[in-house]
Every structure is written in structure tokens, then in C-alpha cells.
């Protein structure tokens, strides 16, 4: 599992997660994901290369989203695999974190919420 963080503007970061977000995958990306959420205000998470997500992944996303919300920021998810989206819906994440079909849609929403 790999993670790549790309700054897109002031406080706005695109995070690409590449690999299975299972218990071993989450352990590999957890530190950088948390650091990115700590440093940013709005985080856009591209899930187009995440074919699998278990509850450990939900834990990672919710921890990051909570931290962002506490400082007035937000998290946006985009380009989910249909089964991964089912995981997000089954755990209620979609009611707490915005899910966008494409990266462009997420960028538009994230850009306006970060004020850039």
C-alpha cells in the first residue's frame, strides 16, 4: 500500500491511496495520512486505486475527518470502487464525509470549501 500527498493550494491537499486498505495496508499509510490531515485544512482522498477497504480503513478516514472538522476543515472522498462505496455506506461514513463520483467534482467542492 502506498500513499501520495500532493498540495493543491493553501491548506488543500490531494491524497492518493494505492492498494488494499486492510489491516496491513492501513499500518503502512497511517502515519503519513494522519500527518497530512494534521497539516491541512481540506483533504481530498482519491480512492480510485483502493480496491478493498475494511473497518480499519473506516477508522483511518473517520479519525482524519474528525480532526479536520475540529479545526473547521473537511474531508472529501472520490472515485470509490462500488464495493468500497458499499463499505462507506454500510458504516454511515457517507453521512459524515462527502463522497464524489470523480476527482474533478471533489476538487470543485473541496476548492470552494477551502476558499481557494
Amino acid at each position: 500500500m502506498k500513499i501520495e500527498s500532493q498540495p493543491l493550494g493553501p491548506g488543500l491537499v490531494l491524497v492518493s491511496l494505492d492498494g488494499r486498505l486492510d489491516i496491513s495496508g492501513a499500518a503502512l499509510v497511517e502515519t503519513q495520512f494522519k500527518a497530512t490531515c494534521d497539516a491541512a485544512n481540506v483533504v481530498l482522498v482519491d480512492l480510485s486505486h483502493t480496491p478493498f477497504m475494511a473497518s480499519i480503513g473506516i477508522r483511518l478516514l473517520l479519525t482524519g475527518a474528525k480532526g479536520l472538522r475540529r479545526k473547521g476543515g473537511s474531508m472529501h472522498l472520490c472515485a470509490c470502487d462500488p464495493q468500497v462505496e458499499k463499505v462507506l455506506i454500510a458504516t454511515g461514513v457517507h453521512q459524515l464525509v462527502a463522497i464524489h463520483a470523480t476527482r474533478d467534482e471533489a476538487l470543485a467542492a473541496a476548492g470552494s470549501s477551502s476558499g481557494t
Partner: peptide, 24 residues
């Protein structure tokens, strides 16, 4: 079954494993 929280502040970070098994 955990209750779906009204806001992100109320969201439980863990405890989703059994919920997922039931759903899938």
C-alpha cells in the same frame, strides 16, 4: 447494530467490523 451518528463529532471511530459482516 451501532446507531448512525448525526454528526462527525458523534461518530464512533471503531466498532464497525460486525456491522460490515452483517451488511455484506
Amino acid at each position: 447494530e451501532p446507531v448512525v451518528p448525526a454528526s462527525i463529532e458523534d461518530a464512533k471511530i471503531g466498532g464497525h467490523g460486525v456491522q460490515l459482516m452483517r451488511n455484506f
